[in-house]
Amino acid sequence: EPLWIRPDAPSRCTWQLGRPASESPHHHTAPAKSPKILPDILKKIGDTPMVRINKIGKKFGLKCELLAKCEFFNAGGSVKDRISLRMIEDAERDGTLKPGDTIIEPTSGNTGIGLALAAAVRGYRCIIVMPEKMSSEKVDVLRALGAEIVRTPTNARFDSPESHVGVAWRLKNEIPNSHILDQYRNASNPLAHYDTTADEILQQCDGKLDMLVASVGTGGTITGIARKLKEKCPGCRIIGVDPEGSILAEPEELNQTEQTTYEVEGIGYDFIPTVLDRTVVDKWFKSNDEEAFTFARMLIAQEGLLCGGSAGSTVAVAVKAAQELQEGQRCVVILPDSVRNYMTKFLSDRWMLQKGFLKEEDLTEKKPWWWHLRVQELGLSAPLTVLPTITCGHTIEILREKGFDQAPVVDEAGVILGMVTLGNMLSSLLAGKVQPSDQVGKVIYKQFKQIRLTDTLGRLSHILEMDHFALVVHEQIQYHSTGKSSQRQMVFGVVTAIDLLNFVAAQERDQK
């Protein structure tokens, strides 16, 4: 057995438009009618409502009807409940999964919650491996369901041993009777949507819809739904939504950006999952974080739909894509998950301010006199920076000697690579993860907040409520011999709460 199987392995699926269902090699399930009293909570997966979006479509000038398939009504709160249950049931049916076995899954959280929910009911041990950027709410729900959680670096490539995929496979090879159901490759993922989600949409719309818009992560949702719609409703256009920084969209030119990270969760990847059939997507749109969270908040405030950030991405694209539809036509959007997962993220004004998705003037509360002053007023001194090749031991000596707790790590040209902190280095040394002679590049981390000289002290204040420091950066445009230009970030300084307090105190003292 291989040590790991690539999540982007070539698909062996034989589905073709027009091929009889009787030739399918898979076990198919028909939607079942729910009894009045459910035998367990797993029976509350599927049969989610279709809700008309009344205000947002009109606000953006849509002539067509805009409908939302509300997947956050599933038992675990997301569309991923469907595939989690289906993968477990299919693994039980073919004898792969037996009582007492362990389920391991690399996930952005929602599939993990679905699997942990099913594992709690069915009696399996469950280990979820997820990147650090995923919300604390997801972690809390997983723990409450009895799952064990392993976190991995957000910026690790999918084929790196440190990625959530790599760590999951390492655990599988170490733990007896453990299984990775593997949402990236498992046919049960798109089949769950082909058999149930798509049929529900067709039934709820009486077979009449002209466009379907869905955000894409593993691709199982859009693949399964689109294949069924292509068979039953061939005139329906399928629109895929991919965040900026991901590479799922086609044509490839759409993916060209210097951005590699994004805040919206559960969609987009740096590889093409095996289950994603991009041939059934008629057109791709890219979405960005700001519009995703703005539209998610709009869905909550104006439509009462308590959905997550990827739902915002989907609707932001839908109001663009559906401009081509006329009166009497219908566009369906998939709202994948609930706001429950993001209470401390985009639902929080403070978080939105820190990330730059909300401006101070958007909030009406009274601010102190210094709130709208610029960061450049602080008069920061030149920063202490270190090269990635310097040793951890030497870096600790320098920081202690100069009285700093942290320093930016830059390359020879001064471009920011990340940050090192005294606390992080000492804990890594004590844990045996690094040696004093190791290069400081081994303990770089990139989960820090950046701020510009033109940003306000109010925004800085919000950042420092949650973080010990902020890195002050400025952009530099560099022209190359080819005539092309590129933008790079340079370090201007490091600012802490002490710097802000000293500035405010000094100004008030001078005024007296």
Rank of each mutant, 00 (worst) to 15 (best):
I238E: 00
V241F: 07
P243G: 06
L248I: 07
E258M: 10
Q259R: 12
Q259P: 12
T260D: 14
E263C: 08
E263I: 05
E263K: 15
I272C: 11
L276R: 01
R278T: 05
V281K: 01
S287A: 13
N288Y: 13
E290V: 13
A292L: 05
T294N: 05
R297C: 00
L299K: 04
I300G: 00
I300A: 01
A301R: 10
E303D: 10
G304W: 03
A311W: 03
G312A: 00
V319R: 02
K320A: 11
A321Y: 08
A321F: 07
G328T: 08
C331N: 02
L335N: 01
D337T: 04
R340T: 02
F346Y: 05
F346V: 02
L347C: 03
W351G: 03
M352G: 00
M352Q: 01
Q354V: 04
G356W: 05
G356E: 08
L358W: 05
K359Q: 15
E360F: 15
T364L: 12
E365K: 13
L373N: 11
E377Y: 02
L378G: 04
L384N: 09
L384W: 06
L384D: 11
T391I: 09
C392A: 14
I396K: 04
I398C: 08
K402W: 02
G403S: 13
V410R: 15
G414D: 10
V415H: 11
L422H: 09
N424T: 04
N424L: 12
N424R: 11
M425I: 13
S427D: 09
A431P: 07
G432A: 14
K433V: 12
P436I: 15
Q439R: 10
V440W: 03
V440I: 15
G441I: 12
I444V: 14
I444D: 12
Q447G: 05
F448K: 07
K449W: 15
R452M: 12
L453R: 15
G458H: 07
L460A: 07
L464W: 08
D467M: 08
A470C: 04
A470Y: 01
L471Q: 07
V472S: 10
E475H: 09
E475W: 12
Q478R: 15
Q478K: 14
V494A: 09
L501Q: 01
A506W: 08
Q507L: 12
R509A: 12
Q511M: 11
